[in-house]
Design a protein around this nucleic acid. Structure first.
Length: 902
RNA sequence: GCGGAGAUUGCCGAGCUAGGACAAAGGCGAUGGAUUCAGGGUCCAUUUCCGUAGGGAUUCGUGGGUUCAAAUCCCACUCUCCGCACCA
């Protein structure tokens, strides 16, 4: 569709408010949600899949008679918007470039500077992009009820979040305690995935090292290790001579580690005192004692030791570390190498170093290291390790760590799994917070409720049910508050702001009664818990409020009761272990019965031109660009029909062009269409029956959310049928005449703009196809006999073609002999066994062909007779038709006419 | 190592939960043809092998099994992907 036509319907839908449903107790409701977008930028081709699926479902449900609520809001919680704004204020070049880029798509060049300037205020970023996203969504034809829009920063909503946390607290799910968390020392704040640069694509986790203490004359050295079980194989310590080392005092011990290690350690343990630098020469000159074995070892310098990772001191186990071994080889270090782990296979450090020639070529270093660790961890046994000898590596690791910790020979040292910085550029480390607030998702009763919920919900596709149950089991404590960021203050400790995923777990409920809650808030400047208990939990009516409050509360309660129960939530796989798990847990904790979520649809990843969508690949295509270059309908068609919901969808030019080809075939047909009379000959009857059979498939597939299959039926198959009509010499116009209204209705969920335009042009200029319902009782409209006839005809054609292919004669004529009365009588009598004598000669022929004989007997003579012209034109051969009246040596059978080419 | 998904005809990708017209949908590519077509558009046909009659043979990761019948069910194995775990 041309842009102007799409714009026309976009505006007319909005003006007519057809997507803003009201309570209708006589109709079943359907409440579908998709995650609210985060408003720090515009959306791209990948984001659009989830929203498009949401709209297709919403439109389909509307079409089948449901009162559909499909709302949208915006997420503003957390630190990214603040951080970007701050970076813009600080003149950060990359950020400015990024936002210029966003803006250049939407704004005139002369306006960009002004708008960019306004972004120095964080709220303006959120406001600007929510406007942009609304426009994109409207341009894409989403049937969203915008009248219920709100954001996570709206004061009325924050009252709901406070209520939610109060509920969790009353159920004993809010805890306070110490916990290792990702932390930014500079920002003095815990950081989550959303705060970390590239945190969504490259996850950062917390690793628990064992900080092993090596006793020296003057102080201890702490080396952090993930493999404490190799302690008996230590032959020396490594230290980076160009790094700065510091001394701390902890539990009465003087301990040396790198400066950055000192900082981290002091964030992780109480009572650490920093006492100043220690020159590395001083360390190197000393000897140190290995814990447990009490052996003395020396310190060697090594440039590979990273002072910013761990403690900046590493103990060397050349017998079990490829890295150490190679360093020994290259530098001709003569220390005796010790083996402390035995495996059955021949995999060893030496073996792998030789296998991959690692001394000269370190390309495979990482791979070899992995191979070694896997082998030793799962199949290894400790040897030469004192009392631990004989233990498996898995047991021994725990036992050794435990003993060292109990004897204060080691302390826990947390480190990040990779080097990471926050979006504002400050370093991410691990800190142990002592007054961190958590939501405790671990109680048994909660897990059980959550499992029950998961098991009762619908999953599309089904395989995610298992993953969801696993996610429920994995969840433990979740830190739920931060020191800064946009969001709701924790009601029982206002120094904290509720974390951005935790404030969005039950938010969908506020769509149901947003207007009333907002009224309540502006009237009272708060929404008391007892009012929300009344609205959301159906508790006793509080008596002591004024009439305005009570009437709004009552209305809010009615809206909630009618709509709530999020029948379907559509998101993407990365949400399973966080957002969706919290969504399930929080609902399980607070709600019951019909208020619990009804279903989850999880759509697969979208990639662009064969690669993961990312700025560095340059394959980010914004939704606006799509609307401009292609059209909303094409995009929607691609999203719906391009791949099954669960599979990966690749946005690429090649597939796109084939979709566009089909779409323009469709618009050509409908542009050329004019209403006429229904045709009543064979091919029109066939088309109509075939259409309704396709419609039936469409409905069945839509009901089970097989969106792709349903559109293959109603879009592709119907158009192929139209081609078949033409091949039969029929007219598309006439064929379409009786089914056009139903066809446009069925297509409206996926290509609403075209459907709306043609509905107005060809069906009814005074109503919206987007507001129609479709009659789903269509069995009576399908004439199965005519479908079988066409099927038979196809079979005859392919039989003739097959013969033509293998006989190399110049074929002029095909004589088709169909079964007659004799064959019919045989087939009727044979099963009973009372055959007349003359028929007995047919038994042999029958047995040979019985697997190919059609079960029903069609009037094959008439079928061929009526379609003689069609057969002749398509096969380019003359056709004669004979109905046999004799018993032949080789008989024609139902579905198996005799064909003779001459 | 654990958990999950998967292995289909040149490629992509259905089908496999309810085994039977499956040589296996659809798309792409390729080949041939049509269209007053001049080379990328559209349409039609073909695209495992053999065959001068609609047939036959061999196929759905490998090897077994169940069955009158298996791409579809069962067992074992190999490999791939994802999550977890693991790593100086």
């Amino acid at each position: 569709m041309e842009r102007s036509i799409e714009e026309k319907w976009r505006d007319r839908w909005a003006e007519s408010h057809i997507f803003e449903p009201v309570i209708d107790v006589g109709r079943k409701k359907f409440f579908v949600t998709v995650p609210w977008p985060y408003t720090n930028g515009s959306l791209h081709v990948g984001h659009g899949r989830t929203y498009t699926l949401g709209d297709i479902v919403a439109r389909y449900k509307r079409l089948t008679g449901y009162n559909v609520l499909f709302p949208m809001g915006f997420h503003e919680s957390g630190t990214p918007i603040l951080a970007f704004s701050e970076r813009l204020r600080n003149g950060d070049k990359d950020t400015i470039k990024l936002y210029r880029n966003y803006l250049s798509e939407y704004e005139k060049p002369e306006d960009i500077d002004r708008i960019l300037e306004s972004f120095r205020e964080p709220q303006n970023i959120a406001d600007y992009f929510s406007r942009v996203i609304i426009k994109d969504f409207m341009d894409l034809g989403y049937s969203i009820d915008w009248s219920r829009k709100f954001t996570s920063a709206d004061p009325f909503y924050q009252e709901v979040v406070k209520w939610q946390f109060n509920q969790l607290n009353e159920k004993g799910l809010i805890k306070k305690g110490s916990y290792p968390i990702l932390y930014s020392i500079k920002d003095e704040n815990a950081v989550g995935e959303d705060d970390i640069k590239d945190g969504d694509t490259d996850k950062v986790s917390i690793e628990e090292f064992t900080g092993v203490l090596f006793r020296g004359e003057k102080y201890y050295l702490m080396a952090a290790s993930l493999r404490p079980e190799t302690i008996f194989g230590v032959t020396n310590l490594w230290l980076n001579p160009s790094a700065t080392y510091g001394l701390i005092r902890y539990r009465g011990m003087d301990i040396v580690m790198s400066d950055s290690g000192c900082k981290k350690f002091s964030m992780q343990h109480e009572g650490v005192q920093y006492k100043g630098d220690v020159p590395s020469e001083d360390i190197i000159a000393s000897e140190f004692q290995v814990p447990l074995s009490n052996e003395k070892i020396g310190v060697l310098t090594a440039s590979f030791v990273d002072p910013d990772n761990g403690t900046g001191i590493v103990y060397s186990v050349p017998g079990h570390s490829i890295f150490d071994y190679i360093y020994y080889e290259k530098n001709s270090i003569k220390n005796k190498i010790r083996k402390v782990v035995k495996v059955d296979s021949n995999i060893s450090v030496k073996f792998l170093v030789e296998k991959y020639d690692l001394v000269n070529n370190d390309g495979k270093l990482k791979e070899a290291t992995q191979e070694l660790y896997k082998e030793e961890f799962y199949n290894g046994t400790l040897i030469n390790s004192g009392e631990y000898s004989g233990m498996s590596v898995e047991e021994g690791r725990e036992a050794i760590r435990k003993e060292m910790q109990e004897k204060h020979l080691a302390f826990i040292f947390y480190e990040t799994s990779r080097k990471a910085v926050t979006r504002s550029g400050s370093e991410v480390t691990v800190a142990v917070l002592n007054d961190q607030w958590f939501i405790d998702y671990s109680p048994e009763w909660l897990k059980e409720k959550a499992h029950n919920l998961v098991n009762s919900m619908k999953f599309y596709p089904e395989l995610y049910r298992k993953l969801m149950n696993d996610a429920v089991d994995w969840l433990k404590e979740r830190p739920c508050a931060r020191r800064r960021g946009i969001g709701t203050k924790l009601p029982f400790d206002e120094r904290w702001v509720i974390e951005s995923l935790s404030d969005s777990t039950i938010y969908m409920l506020a769509y149901t009664n947003k207007k009333e809650l907002e009224n309540l808030y502006s009237h009272l400047q708060r929404i008391p818990y007892d009012i929300l208990d009344y609205i959301l939990l159906g508790k006793q009516v509080p008596e002591n409020y004024d009439e305005f409050t009570m009437s709004n509360a009552l209305k809010a309660k009615d809206e909630f009761n009618y709509w709530y129960g999020n029948d379907l939530r559509i998101t993407a796989p990365p949400h399973i272990s966080n957002h969706l798990a919290f969504f399930i847990m929080n609902h399980s904790a607070i709600f019951r019965g019909k208020e619990l979520p009804g279903g989850l649809m999880i759509s697969g990843l979208v990639i662009s031109n064969g690669a993961k969508i990312s700025k560095s690949k340059g394959n980010v295509i914004s939704l606006l660009e799509i609307i401009k270059h292609y059209s909303a309908d094409i995009y929607r068609l691609f999203m719906a029909a391009g791949a099954d919901i669960s599979s990966l969808l690749d946005w690429n030019e090649k597939d796109l062009s084939s979709v566009m080809k089909r779409y323009s075939y469709f618009t050509d047909i409908l542009d050329g269409y004019s209403p006429g009379n229904d045709g009543d000959n064979y091919i029109y009857t066939w088309f109509k029956s075939s259409f309704y059979r396709n419609l039936k498939t469409y409905i069945a597939d839509m009901e089970s959310m097989n969106i792709r299959d349903s559109y293959i039926a109603i879009f592709y198959n119907v158009m192929n049928d139209l081609k078949n009509v033409e091949n039969h010499g029929g007219s598309i116009n006439t064929a379409l005449n009786p089914v056009l209204p139903d066809w446009l209705k069925a297509l409206s969920p996926i290509i609403p703009f075209a459907a709306e335009e043609y509905w107005h042009r060809h069906v009814d200029n005074n109503s919206f196809v987007s507001a129609q319902t479709i009659d789903i009782n269509i069995d009576g409209k399908i004439d199965y006999n005519v479908l079988k006839s066409e099927n038979y005809l196809d079979r005859v054609i392919s039989d003739i073609r097959e013969i033509l292919k293998i006989i190399h004669i110049d074929a002029k004529r095909a004589t088709i002999t169909v079964y007659g009365d004799k064959q019919k009588k045989f087939l009727e009598d044979y099963p009973g066994g009372n055959l007349d004598r003359e028929y007995r000669t047919m038994i042999g022929d029958y047995m040979k062909n019985k697997n190919r004989i059609a079960p029903e007997m069609l009037d094959e003579y008439s079928i061929i007779e009526n379609n003689k012209g069609y057969l002749e034109s398509i096969l380019k051969i003359n056709v004669d038709i004979v109905k046999t009246d004799i018993i032949q040596k080789k008989n024609p059978w139902p579905g198996r006419p005799l064909i003779e080419i001459s």
